[in-house]
Write a protein that binds this DNA or RNA. Structure first.
Length: 270
DNA sequence: GTTGAGCGTT
């Protein structure tokens, strides 16, 4: 359909990339081309697609030949209704042409012309982005959905990387967070755990791995809840007279503490 | 059939 991106990234040396957000998931490059081409010379349009589903991710990159045209497109197309949705057009920041960007501040991709008109395009967008407190809930909501299948295939590394990048800009403590994430990942990939998980998988059932220590108590009351009262605590019943659950009933004592340290005893006995 | 923060490919 779209002749864009048929041979990968063309010549980005003299192009200015615009990031188009909030586009519909069915909007294609061909749909954006006429729109953006009206305001300048569009050399390429790229819409990142999902690796798994191959569907659009909801944003696109439009490359202009000249910065002034790009800025004009930003000013004119930002907030434009496309396919029933208001798109967001802004200069790309983390793209392959980041070499032109200096610490988040665009050098060449952001000439003076837009400096004056930029306010207009940024105002509406900012209001929708920063003022929305539901962002957290929305983000998490989607995160869960993504994790669902990402964990099955990609471990969600790609998404994490991008999310962290954004956080880094706002928070210099990214180091702390990054370390935490790293630690978490490492912990998850712990060899001991991996081996442990795999070992019992084909070697023997897993129900024995974790409940090992608890097993002492579990089988005892689970296997023979009736046998215990009359076999293990005849004295208790005698003392209470008519206790329905001698082991469970403890008015003042601490049966839990007493039973805890002596699970092996019962087990060994049995 | 769905979703809605965000920054990209041969």
């Amino acid at each position: 359909m779209s002749h864009f991106g048929r041979s990968g990234p063309p010549d980005i040396s003299d192009t200015y990339s615009l990031l188009v957000l909030n586009i519909t998931f069915r909007t294609t490059a061909d749909d954006l081309f006429p729109l953006f081409d009206k305001y300048g010379k569009v050399v390429d349009i790229f819409i990142p697609k999902d690796r798994r589903t191959g569907d659009s991710r909801g944003f696109a990159f439009v490359r202009y030949k000249y910065a002034d045209e790009a800025s004009k497109a930003v000013d004119r197309l930002d907030g434009r209704m496309v396919d029933g949705r208001e798109i967001t057009v802004q200069f790309a920041k983390y793209g392959p042409n980041a070499e032109r960007i200096h610490k988040g501040r665009i050098i060449e991709t952001s000439p003076k012309p837009i400096s004056s008109h930029k306010s207009r395009s940024r105002s509406p967008r900012k209001r929708h982005r920063d003022d929305y407190r539901d962002r957290d809930y929305r983000r998490r909501s989607r995160s869960r959905s993504y994790d669902r299948y990402e964990r099955d295939r990609y471990r969600g590394r790609d998404r994490d990387y991008r999310r962290r990048s954004r956080s880094r800009s706002a928070s210099p403590d990214y180091k702390s967070r990054r370390r935490g994430r790293y630690d978490d990942e490492r912990h998850c990939r712990s060899p001991s755990r991996s081996v442990d998980s795999r070992s019992p998988a084909r070697h023997s059932p897993s129900p024995r791995r974790s409940p090992s220590p608890k097993k002492s108590i579990s089988p005892q009351r689970s296997l023979s809840p009736r046998k215990s009262p009359r076999d293990a605590s005849p004295d208790n019943r005698s003392r209470n007279g008519r206790s329905a659950s001698p082991r469970s009933v403890s008015p003042r004592g601490r049966p839990d503490a007493s039973r805890s340290p002596s699970p092996r005893h019962s087990n060994g006995d049995e």
